[in-house]
Simulated assay, not measured.
Amino acid sequence: MPEGHSVHRIARQFERNFVGRPVRASSPQGRFAEGAAILSGRTPTRAQAVGKQMFLEFDSGVWLRVHLGLYGAWDFAGEILVDPTIASANGRMGQTNQRGTVVEDAPIFDDAGENSLSSIGAPRRTRVHVRMSEQTKGLDEADGLEAPDAEWPPPVVGQVRLRLLTDATCADLRGPTACVVETAEQVAAVIARLGPDPLVGDPAENEERFVRAVRSRAVAIGQLLMDQSVVSGIGNVYRAEMLFRARLDPHTPGRAIPEEVVRGLWRDWDGLLRIGVETGQMMTMDGLEGEAWRRAMASRDDRHWVYHRAGLPCRVCGTEIALEEMQARKLYWCPNCQR
């Protein structure tokens, strides 16, 4: 499931390519036909991510709420405007369109096929230009671009729940957990139920909300970090890495953790989330430069402390990394460093 950094990147892509441009909306799959009819002809006015959910506001006070869940993903085709303030894995960003790209270096793909410029969401092959998913396998081998004479708009591939189309850009949504049209009041109610997101709202207030939520509960911190009502956006990868970085036993009750440690967790999440938004990947190891950085961007085996390292020696103490289930999700941790 995409974690918070991915959804923020998706929202920013919508800000650049769709906000202020009238859209044609359709549901090729048919399951969202009624909602698409409401959205078609309207103009997006704002895109916002809170945790793992994205909210796209349209004129006349109509909102689209999307939760990608385990299998959802957005595909973008056509003119893709890239924010130059957000780095890609290779440090080069630019503007892409159907005829080429100004990205100067070849993209770095990790061992799962993920590239920070073109991937957000769940893994799935696609023929469209830029894939907001976990991988881009199946695209053109050079740089993921369609041929110069690619059909426009691109043909529908697979089960597309929602297609949003401007004169220049196409966004296809597949397999989301939630795709609904809501009022401003309904959106506000959803956001009110979510825990704080470091990139949304007042920083000081967010930190205090997190500290209160954790220290008032007897629930294990490994569960609390995955509770979206406690903190928004953290998933399996960030949970494991944050707990290791804090040297915290995942089973420690929240109320038993000293306040300064809880505040440290929040500030670490703030920093890691910003790195994830900037690079497009969940980089959780510190101090990597040059070739070490490129290796880490190319393989998660070189960018995580404990995640997906069950049975391997801890990078710090050599103890075998443990794997267990906590609330039906895999938990990786070091029994020696985190005690």
Rank of each mutant, 00 (worst) to 15 (best):
A168V: 11
E325H: 10
G91C: 13
T279R: 15
N236Q: 04
A189E: 09
Q223W: 14
R127W: 06
V160T: 04
A328W: 11
P107C: 13
S299F: 05
N236E: 02
E241N: 04
D270V: 07
C334L: 15
E57M: 11
R309P: 02
V277D: 00
F58R: 00
G175C: 01
T183D: 12
P2L: 03
C317A: 12
G233S: 07
L56K: 00
T177I: 05
E104T: 13
Q95A: 14
E151M: 08
V19M: 11
E57T: 06
T279S: 13
G78R: 09
G138Q: 06
A36W: 00
R255I: 09
V66M: 08
P196G: 09
S88V: 13
L165Y: 02
R309D: 03
K330G: 07
T284K: 01
R99I: 14
A213T: 04
S26D: 09
A256K: 11
Y71H: 07
P313H: 09
K52L: 02
M297H: 07
S27T: 02
E185F: 09
A77R: 07
G61D: 03
F76T: 09
W266D: 02
T169C: 08
R163G: 02
R174Y: 03
A147Y: 05
A184Y: 06
E79M: 09
P154R: 13
Q228I: 06
W63Y: 05
G276K: 00
L312V: 15
P107V: 12
Q13E: 08
E104A: 07
D268P: 02
H308L: 11
F244A: 01
F18Y: 03
R193D: 15
V219Q: 10
E104C: 06
M226I: 03
A298I: 02
G35V: 01
T96D: 09
T279Q: 15
V62A: 14
S216Q: 14
R303C: 03
D197E: 10
